[in-house]
Every structure is written in structure tokens, then in C-alpha cells.
Amino acid sequence: MSTMADPRPWLSGATEQLSTLVAEVRPAQLEAPTPCTEFDVRALLDHVVVMTGCYANLGAGETDAAAATPPPRNAGDREWAEVYAAEAARLNEAWADGAALDRKMSLPWGELPGREALLGCLLDTVTHSWDLARALGIEDDRLDEELAEKTLEVAREIMPAERRGRPTPFEPVRPVEPEAPAARRLAAWLGRWP
């Protein structure tokens, strides 16, 4: 697993970035497609809210991701920014105590210490930020390059190219220019067409 000693500062930056993007979503955009083909914007927002809530519950003491996963939120068209910001704040608060980093947690891909489990949240948050930005027509240069680069390092370590297909939800690595922004290279690594 990744050698990142403490993913919390990176995750805090990731949730801040995603909060900014969610605040830009307008009701007319909720049915727009995203690069994550199973989700339109509304479904993507619901997914990130539920996922963030799950990791907040894990940080707060739950040890099983299945039990920690809240039901879908299906927020009103104008409430997504508030709902996501609240879950992101709860996530960052729940993990403020460093003890959670060493607590064993059961996730679909195995039993891991919290610091390694939290990498899944980082990866999801940064990748879905790119998905949402792309769906909203926001250019890659608006995304945090250092955050995306660090997340790409993590993705390459924990999700190597040969680990694709069931049960992992990632398509094969897609071609992308080596000089492309890090968020685009991350998306391609995780099987999105950049």
C-alpha cells in the first residue's frame, strides 16, 4: 500500500476543491453526462456525498465500510453544495484524531489501517473533481496540479495497470499526453477517456 504517511492534509485540500466545484453546479446541469459513465452530474453528486459520509463514519469509529455507508441523499436541486460541504466538514473533523489512522477498517478490497483506507477517499474525491469539472466545462488548469500529481502517485501504487476489471471499478489505462495536466493523467490512469 502507499507510503503516504498521513493523507489527511491532501484529503482536506481535495474536499475543499470539490466543495468549490459543487458550489458551481446549476440545476440545469444536473442531468449532464460525466466522464464517469455510470453517473450524470446528479448521480455523481449523490455518490460523492454518500462516499464522503461513509469515510466520515469510518473516521468517527465505525470499522466496517458496509455499515458505515449512509443511504443516498438525493438532495434538492439547489442543496448539493450545502450537503456536500457539511459531509466534507464532518469527514475532516472525524479524522482529526490521528488514532483513526492506525485503526483497522474493513473495506470491500480488504482490511486496512485507516491511513490506507483513507487513500480510497482521496482517490475518489480528486478523480470525481475532474469528472465534475469536465461535466461543467471547467478547464483542467482550475484544478490543483500538486494535489492531482500526488493522487496520481497514489493511484499508480495502489491501482497498478494490471489490476483492472472486476471486482475493481476501473477500466484499462487510457492513452494521454505525458505533458497533460495531472488531473487528466489521473483520469486516464483510472480508465476515463481524457
Rank of each mutant, 00 (worst) to 15 (best):
A32T: 05
D124L: 03
V49I: 15
V154C: 05
A81P: 07
P113Q: 13
S129D: 10
R192I: 04
P35F: 01
D102H: 09
A60K: 08
P113R: 14
P71Q: 09
A94T: 09
P167S: 09
T127E: 11
D97I: 03
D141Q: 09
G59H: 08
R185Y: 01
A28L: 09
R42L: 00
V176Y: 07
D77M: 07
A65P: 02
V83R: 11
R42E: 15
E24W: 00
G137V: 09
T20A: 15
L44W: 09
L11E: 14
A28H: 12
P167C: 06
M1K: 06
E157Y: 00
T69M: 14
A75R: 08
E149I: 01
E153D: 14
P175G: 14
T37M: 07
A94E: 08
K150T: 14
A85F: 01
V126K: 04
L118E: 09
L119P: 00
D124S: 05
W80A: 07
D77R: 14
D124I: 07
R192M: 11
G13T: 14
V154D: 03
T127G: 12
G165D: 01
H128W: 02
D124G: 00
N74I: 00
L21A: 10
E79T: 12
A161S: 15
F39P: 06
T168L: 15
A155V: 11
E24T: 15
L190E: 03
P113C: 12
T127Q: 13
R103Y: 01
C36G: 07
Q29P: 05
G61K: 11
S19Q: 13
E16R: 15
E87H: 12
R163F: 07
D46W: 00
E24I: 05
V41D: 11
E79C: 02
A100C: 06
V48M: 14
A148F: 04
R184S: 14
E93N: 05
P167T: 11
R142E: 15
L118I: 04
Y84A: 11
W130L: 09
G191L: 05
G53H: 02
E31M: 11
L122E: 06
G191H: 13
L30S: 05
V41A: 10
R78N: 13
L30I: 09
P160F: 05
A14V: 08
P27Y: 01
H47F: 13
E16L: 10
M159R: 10
D144N: 14
L132G: 09
P194I: 01
G13M: 13
E146N: 12
A68G: 04
R142F: 12
A155M: 01
A183E: 05
V173L: 10
A66Q: 12
D6V: 10
R142A: 14
D144H: 09
V50M: 15
R166T: 13
M159P: 00
L132W: 01
